[in-house]
Structure formats: C-alpha cells, structure tokens
C-alpha cells in the first residue's frame, strides 16, 4: 500500500515518459517522503552516502557494483560488466527517465536491502549522487 502510494505520488511529480532532470526526482521523492514520513526534514547527502556504502544485512551494498566513487565506472559484482558512473556530473544520462529510475531502484533495493526502498532513502541517495563531482 505504501509503495502504491509512493508510486502514485511519484507519477504525479514526474511525468512517466518525458526527459527528466535529476532534481525532478528529488522533488518527486520529497513529496512522497512527506506523505510516508510525518517528520520528514529533507534529504541528506551524507545519509545517502552511508546508505550507498552499507550492506544492509545482505552480501551487497550499492557500492559493491557502483564502487564507493560514483563518479567512476563500476563493475558488476557477478558478471564483471562495466557499469557507467552513477553521478550525474560524470554521466549526464543518469536520472533522466522516470521509468528507468523506478525500475532500477526496485530491482537493486530488493537485492541490497531485501525490500523496496522508501522515498527518503531514494532521495538521500540521489542527493548524495548529485553531490559527487568528478
């Protein structure tokens, strides 16, 4: 239910099909986070960094594949395939398509956190990635 609500808020904030900017996702996740979390105080790049580099009880962290430097290319932990940088400053294609952002957060959160991520977690990670400069 929570997730449906977040998805609806997300769709309302960011068009399903157009070309978005990373900041649009921050805005949409912020709207969703305020509804999910009554005391929501805004995103925090430092918290996003910690989330990104932590294994949440499983084998992997985000950084297992994306490395602890999101401005650099990563390497898939299973296949070894190169993954282009996650930081928008290093890769202009990141966070420009709503469907792609939702798809990857859904998949990767299940792999790393073993559940879907909250809007705050997603927003924190985007805030962190936006703070990283090459």
């Amino acid at each position: 239910m929570h997730r449906l609500f977040a998805a609806a808020a997300f769709a309302a904030g960011v068009g399903a099909a157009g070309a978005e900017q990373p900041r649009d996702f921050e805005t949409a996740f912020s709207t969703a986070a305020q509804q999910e979390e009554p005391g929501f105080q805004g995103f925090d790049a430092g918290r996003g960094r910690e989330f990104f580099n932590t294994t949440h009880g499983g084998d992997w962290s985000c950084s297992s594949c994306h490395t602890d430097n999101p401005a650099a290319a990563g390497k898939h932990a299973v296949t070894g395939k190169t993954i282009q940088p996650m930081a928008p400053a290093a890769n202009a294609e990141r966070f420009t398509k709503a469907a792609k952002v939702e798809k990857w957060f859904t998949r990767n959160c299940r792999d790393v956190v073993k559940r879907v991520c909250t809007a705050r977690e997603k927003g924190d990670v985007i805030a962190y990635l936006l703070s990283v400069k090459p």
Partner: peptide, 11 residues
C-alpha cells in the same frame, strides 16, 4: 526474472 541467477532483474 525477479530471481535471475541470484539477482533481481524484474521487468
């Protein structure tokens, strides 16, 4: 695809 060789690749 949600348990695709140990990785979530759901579509």
């Amino acid at each position: 695809l949600s348990t695709h060789f140990g990785v979530d690749a759901s579509l």
